[in-house]
Design a protein around this nucleic acid. Structure first.
Length: 303
DNA sequence: TAAGCGTGGCA
DNA sequence: TTGCCAAGCTT
């Protein structure tokens, strides 16, 4: 399909990266894992914690985690139970288990050094398309498209002129970011980080601050008059109150606090009115390896 | 491809 | 208050 001449077309995608990079140079939040002297391991830990979890909740847990386990080997030397406890209430405690397992894999397969190669990173437990590229790009400075929910939204609006990104499709999303990514390594790094930052702080899901947006003048969504989203709706997240997830969280809270086996009869008091939901939650946690049945009750995993 | 997975902030 | 959303991953 023929393209119009690049003579200042309002939504010229080639202008997006330079504008975002320039904005990011002064607008970036001073997040601790962005400091120049942070190790690849510390970056990797931040990326695990930030999966589906807000910056404000991650920061204190990350500081404590890095102080206690400054290397993959330090974490791998402890039982998974300690990782789950230190994870505290960050949510999705399977991530703590996966991070511990990834640390073990890094020690076993990579001599204790976080790998730089994308395929090596992807092979680690709990690391998917986003986290692998985030570590390669942010910890090592390599040129990869990094696509998270923020970047997807920025591209959907600024480039595609749509209010929302629609369902994720990894290959397509990566290709879309690759088309925008500067050839220069350092610029690519800054654009990856800047696009995420823009989506997180300005081009937000619910109340975008277009008046403060550095790319408002080349935003296709704005040029079209902010049309409403007309694509497929995201499947609604089930209500949390009364859910199995809530039950799992209550059980995990007990197991983290107890430093001895908790008998099932005692554990079920977290959900006195719903024994069936308690049973499903506990079975699920055991299946996930977050709870282990011992002679005297249930404990966090020690191996 | 879609469901399931914690917890908390915010409108 | 209720519902949406959040630096995703695994199955």
């Amino acid at each position: 399909m023929p393209q119009p001449a690049a003579t200042g077309n309002a939504s010229d995608p080639d202008r997006l990266a330079p504008a975002v990079v320039e904005w990011f140079a002064h607008a970036a939040r001073p997040l601790p894992w962005r400091a120049a002297d942070v190790s690849p391991w510390a970056v990797l830990v931040s990326e695990f914690m930030l999966q589906q979890t807000q910056v404000s909740r991650v920061q204190p847990r990350w500081e404590a985690w890095i102080a206690r386990w400054p290397t993959p080997a330090a974490l791998a030397a402890e039982p998974p139970a300690e990782a789950v406890r230190a994870w505290d209430r960050l949510g999705y405690p399977r991530r703590a288990l996966w991070l511990h397992r990834a640390a073990t894999e890094i020690v076993e397969r990579h001599g204790g050094e976080v790998p730089r190669d994308l395929d090596d990173l992807l092979a680690l437990q709990g690391i998917g398309p986003y986290t692998a590229r985030a570590v390669a790009a942010f910890a090592f400075g390599d040129r990869h498209p990094v696509v998270d929910t923020n970047t997807r939204r920025v591209i959907a609006r600024a480039v595609d002129g749509r209010a929302e990104a629609g369902p994720p499709a990894t290959a397509r999303d990566l290709a879309a970011m690759e088309r925008l990514l500067p050839a220069d390594r350092d610029a690519a790094h800054r654009f990856n980080a800047g696009a995420m930052e823009l989506g997180a702080t300005v081009c937000t899901a619910r109340a975008p601050r277009c008046d403060a947006c550095p790319v408002a003048d080349l935003c296709a969504w704005r040029a079209r008059g902010y049309p409403a989203y007309d694509g497929p709706r995201r499947t609604r997240q089930a209500r949390f109150a009364g859910s199995d997830r809530e039950a799992r969280g209550l059980v995990m809270r007990e197991l983290r606090a107890a430093h001895r086996p908790v008998p099932a009869e005692e554990l079920r008091r977290v959900l006195p009115d719903d024994p069936e939901r308690f049973r499903r939650a506990l079975e699920g946690l055991v299946a996930d390896g977050l709870a282990v049945a011992s002679l005297d009750g249930y404990v966090l995993p020690h191996a």
